[in-house]
């Protein structure tokens, strides 16, 4: 599970890096996060929400597992 978190985090970093790259090239370059009417920005927002939601549910799962272990 740790590996998964690490992978996701590095993916996020990659996204961020590519966003920075585009910004440096100037606004007229319609690539990466600025392409197609900036729809990728919406994707990034939606995926962030999804990540947060799943992280929350995962933590809840872990917490309940711990409680179950303690009550056994």
């Amino acid at each position: 599970m740790k590996h998964l978190t690490l992978t996701l985090f590095s993916l996020l970093l990659m996204f961020w890096a590519s966003a920075q790259g585009t910004a440096a090239q100037g606004a007229e370059q319609a690539t990466g996060l600025r392409a197609d009417g900036k729809i990728y920005v919406v994707v990034a927002v939606a995926v962030t929400i999804l990540l947060g939601l799943f992280l929350y549910v995962y933590r809840l799962d872990r917490k309940i597992s711990k409680l179950e272990k303690a009550s056994r």
């Binding site: 729809i39 990728y40 994707v43 939606a46 999804l50 799962d61």
Partner: peptide, 22 residues
Amino acid sequence: RQYWWKILSFILLLYTFIAGFL
């Protein structure tokens, strides 16, 4: 306890959220 389906759920929704927009 099986947990693979939880990861599957995440992957499917991640796919939905990316492909759904693009």
